[in-house]
Write a protein that binds this DNA or RNA. Structure first.
Length: 416
RNA sequence: GUGGGUAUAGCUCAACUGGUAGAGCACUGGACUGUGGAUCCGGGGGUUAAGGGUUCGAACCCCUUUACUCACCCCA
């Protein structure tokens, strides 16, 4: 029986892992610049957390979540998204007493869907959550953070912004929309007819040509926003303008999670195929309360790491190299012993080095040095041991320069 | 969950309308007993995804299963 990985769950091999390390390191760096601090929560949570937080009726909870029994006790779930667990931790540890909090996380999420380009059963999200501030200034700042992060990676995206209303204006709008769509049921496609009850906002998103006339004339949420939501949206846009963040108002942008209110946004890329969203998020002012905490506004986003990696790859952005500074080529037993000793000294000095312990043909060792991504190679044999001197070979230029072995650490430790 | 496409060496692919399974790259040995990317010669590697059927004969045709992949749905 041949073993293979679980469908939709992928390995990141050493050759590509540099890209992931780059994305993660930059996230930590940039998020810290905006005052966000890292939080780590379990991959497993009570299933009820997601049912209550994300929404019982959403596809994510309803059909995509991995749920299992833990020895008969609780019903547990592999987290399908990061916000609910973060909010749970926020409440459980009473973090709300310390005023506004800005947190971020990196981690694996799980959804049991049919895999396709940019969509996997285990995938990784990089997300930010900010608690305790209802002001639109925060929305603008957080969206700018995300734009900043993507911009530093050279990724070109489109930012789509919308308001999905709040408890004051959305229910009335939804009722109107539902009855409007119901009245035009016959003119809509089968998918849309299903969606009328389940998620009427989604109908507006339909791409089927025959549905378009009905949708064009449908009531628009943007026209029905209450004064609070309208002002909020205007302020967010003004904030983005002030920060020089380009965005597009997208009245049909919908989020798939129940907890979103007011601000909803999405960064999309055309390098991704059908799954165009690199990152998405929005405000969730009632979520903390829903999950049992004190009323606390919040806003957050999640970015799909696999999708970002796909974009970087499509851009032809090279994977940052990670090779040793020097690779020792062992010419004979005396050289091998010396190499081991020298390697120890260099490593104590913080200089990365490597060698091929098989000590085979020089040709093979040089090939190994190149494959390891080493900057220099240094042949070590009885002659070098005797003279205390060797030739440091730059593998890129193939130029050799004499070097005293006891000065190697100083030579390689410095810049260049 | 629903469709479409694909499946031959580690990778990329050949194999004439069914006739003994090959090449390039990679790996490895040698030409070169202390200098890699070039050249030349040699070597290891395959139940042709799996199972069944048709046939004198199947990588090729038929059926089933599985995996991968793209799209729908949905979302990061």
């Amino acid at each position: 029986m041949k073993l293979s990985g679980v469908k939709g769950m992928n390995d990141v091999l050493p050759a590509e892992v540099g890209r992931w390390q780059e994305m993660e390191a930059l996230a930590r760096e940039v998020f810290a610049l905006y005052g966000y601090r890292e939080i780590r929560t379990p991959v497993v949570e009570p299933a009820a957390l997601f049912a209550r937080g994300v929404g019982e009726a959403t596809d994510i909870v309803n059909k995509e979540m991995y749920v299992f029994e833990d020895k008969g006790d609780d019903r547990l779930a592999l987290r399908p998204e990061g916000t609910a667990g973060t909010v749970r931790a926020f409440i459980e540890h009473g973090a709300y007493v310390d005023g506004p909090q800005k947190w971020f996380y990196l981690g694996a999420m799980f959804r049991r869907e049919r895999p396709q380009r940019g969509r996997y059963r285990q995938f990784h999200q990089i997300g930010c959550e900010a608690f305790g501030v209802a002001e639109p200034l925060l929305d603008a700042e957080q969206i700018a953070l995300l734009a900043d992060y993507l911009g530093r990676l050279g990724v070109r995206t489109t930012l789509k912004l919308n308001s999905v209303g709040d408890g004051e204006c959305r229910p009335a709008y939804l009722a109107d929309l539902r009855s409007y769509l119901d009245g035009h049921r016959a003119a809509l496609c089968a998918d849309c007819r299903d969606r009328i009850d389940r998620n009427p906002l989604r109908v507006l998103d339909c791409k089927v040509a025959s549905c378009q006339p009905v949708l064009e004339a449908a009531p628009r949420l943007l026209d029905r926003l209450c004064a609070g939501c309208r002002d909020h949206l205007a302020a967010v846009r003004a904030g983005l303008d002030a920060l020089g963040v380009e965005h597009r108002l997208e009245p049909r942008l919908v989020r798939g999670l129940d907890y979103y209110v007011r601000t909803a946004f999405e960064f999309t890329s055309d390098a991704l195929g059908a799954q165009a969203a690199v990152a998405g998020g929005g405000r969730y002012d009632r979520l903390v309360e829903t999950l049992g905490g004190p009323p606390t506004p919040g806003i957050g986003f999640a970015l799909g790491a696999e999708r970002l990696a796909l974009i970087l790859e499509a851009m032809g952005r090279p994977v940052p190299p990670r090779g040793p500074a020097v690779f020792f080529v062992l010419a004979d037993p005396a050289g091998a012993t010396e190499a081991l000793r020298l390697a120890g000294a260099l490593r104590r000095a913080g200089v990365a080095c490597d060698l091929d312990a098989r000590a085979g043909k020089l040709k093979t060792q040089f090939r190994q040095a190149e494959r390891a991504g080493a900057r220099f190679a240094l042949v070590l044999g009885a002659a070098e041991v005797a003279s205390g001197e060797g030739k440091l070979k730059d593998l890129a230029t193939r130029a050799e320069t004499p070097v005293r072995l006891d000065e190697l650490a100083a030579r390689l430790g410095g810049p260049g």
